[in-house]
Structure formats: structure tokens, C-alpha cells
Design a protein around this nucleic acid. Sequence first.
DNA 1: ATTTTGTTGCAACTGAGTTGCATTGTTGAT
DNA 2: ATCAACAATGCAACTCAGTTGCAACAAAAT
Lengths: 144, 144
Amino acid sequence: MIEKFTNDKVSEILKSAGLRLTDARVGVLSVLAESEGALSQEQIAEKLADIAPNKTTIYRVLESLVRKGIVHKAFTRERSVYFELGDNCSEKQCHPHFTCTSCDRTVCLTDVEVPLAGIGEKGFEIHHQKVEIQGLCPGCSVEG
Amino acid sequence: MIEKFTNDKVSEILKSAGLRLTDARVGVLSVLAESEGALSQEQIAEKLADIAPNKTTIYRVLESLVRKGIVHKAFTRERSVYFELGDNCSEKQCHPHFTCTSCDRTVCLTDVEVPLAGIGEKGFEIHHQKVEIQGLCPGCSVEG
DNA sequence: ATTTTGTTGCAACTGAGTTGCATTGTTGAT
DNA sequence: ATCAACAATGCAACTCAGTTGCAACAAAAT
Ligand SMILES: [Mn+2]
Ligand SMILES: [Mn+2]
Ligand SMILES: [Zn+2]
Ligand SMILES: [Zn+2]
């Protein structure tokens, strides 16, 4: 598996954000860094079986990472929040997420750009635009 | 208050969808038809104090209306789902929703169009694209 | 080493939404 | 109008993701 971040890199990110280096924090951030897509608390816990932090701890770690902008809440599904690194987002927009209604998988469209809504002249100030798409993924949309 | 739908219109919609005319169903649909924005189960219940349907009933009514496409799940906030009529949506995209991080209000941008993500040539088939925006509303974005 | 302050585990809690089941209401046919 | 078929409702109990209070603990600064 290709590590997106080394352990040192994770430590550096946390330190320069003014966050303490704890096993739980390093673990959660590493798991998110190595993940293809967004993960729920439960999925993160599964991948941290060695450290086995309490679920409260995971939620509090995630909260701290979100507050620093290191991690984003990507989307909510089945009443669970899914978290991912904030590094694949532009200033005002996160990459879109596509969920296939057939195979029920969610894909990060990291290279897709959707223009910001044109609501500036109406006085709205956009800080963050999120796009969620439902439909059929290439695998499920069999044609021919 | 301007009624978007008359009682007769609500009845007609339900009948042509093959749904039975019950007090709860007529009530919920009327409330949504008269509302400016999306409403949670709790908000709908407040506006139906006269009928006072059980919350389970409201959820089941909403489910039936969503299944028929009459009502959409607009967004999730604070772990609550907000419902609204599906009539302000185009075929493949619902209107964007803007939430102000200052006054905490959510606005339906019914007249705003955001282009669909260009992922057709990658094999994705878009059924529904949802856009959520965070930022400052005209009232809170004081300038000058 | 000591202090300061942030972090953790645990258990109890919260609250939106769901489920099973007995009862009631709507509808279409007679 | 009556009736049968089936959908809708109310209620209570439940689920389960996420939260809270607090005492024990660990990281960082001195
Ligand atoms: Mn993503
Ligand atoms: Mn809306
Ligand atoms: Zn698929
Ligand atoms: Zn505002």
C-alpha cells in the first residue's frame, strides 16, 4: 500500500497545527491519510484495532482535526458522518462525491470541478460548496 | 399566507400517485406546500398541532411521499433530515441550499443553476446532483 | 522534577429515527 | 349502505450514532 503520508509527515502536520502528538491522534490521521475514500468513526476504529481507542476518543480526535481544517466532514450516509483529509479540496469547494445507487459505493471525484454557484451579486459570500451526486457508477451502468 | 396548493390540489396529487387520502398525509403535504423552506419531522409536527399525528406516522407519510417523488430529502442538519416538495427541482438536480454560518439559517436557492459534473464520459450516469453551500447570507455579510 | 494543560476511558445519557403489533380508516366492489 | 381487503395509524419499546461529565492520565513547557 502506498502511504500518502509518512509517520513523520503526520507528526509534522499535527505539531504545526498546535495539536499534541497522541497515539489516537496519530493513528486516526494516519488511517485517513492511507484511505482511498472517506471513513466513518466505526471504520476508523476497525483499522485502529492495535491502538483500540475508545469511540469517544476517536470522535474527539476527529473534532480537533476538523477544527484545524486538516480533516473534513465529507458527507452523511445512513445517519453516519464520513470523514476524510481536507487536502483534495480547493479553497472554497471540496471535491464531489458520487454514490452509486446500485452497488452502494461512494467514490471521491478528486479531479472533477463544478463551478461555484453564481450568488455573489445577491450578497451571499460562499465559504464552502459541497456537491453530492447519486447515480450509476461505470461498473453498474452496463451498456452494450 | 399564499397557499401554494389548494386542498383540492393536494388531494389530486395524492390520488394520482395512488396514495390514500388520510388526514396525516393531506396535513403533511399541505404543510410542506405552504412552507418557504425544508422542514424536519419535528417542525412538521409543530405545524400539525390540530391533527397531532404520531411522529411514527409523520415519518411513514414522508417515506411514502419520498417514494413517489412528491417530496425530497433536501439535506441533513444536526442529525435531522429536512424534507421539501420536489417541485422546485429540475430532472437531474435539486436547487442548491445555502446555510449561513452566522445566523444559522438555510435558504433555498430555487432560481440558481449549477452545471452537472462532467463525468459522463467516465461512465458515470448522474441521476441526481445535490449542492450544499456554507457561508454568509446577505444579511450577515455586512459590508460598508 | 514539577506544573500546566490537553487527552483519554468509561459509563451513562441523548434523541432522531425504526420496528412489531394490535387497532382503525380508506377504498372499491357488491 | 354494507362489506371485505388492505393500507395507515398509535403506541411502546427499541436502535444506535454521537455526546457529556468526570476522574485518571499523558504531553509539553518550565
Ligand atoms: Mn472524498
Ligand atoms: Mn429547498
Ligand atoms: Zn455501482
Ligand atoms: Zn446569515
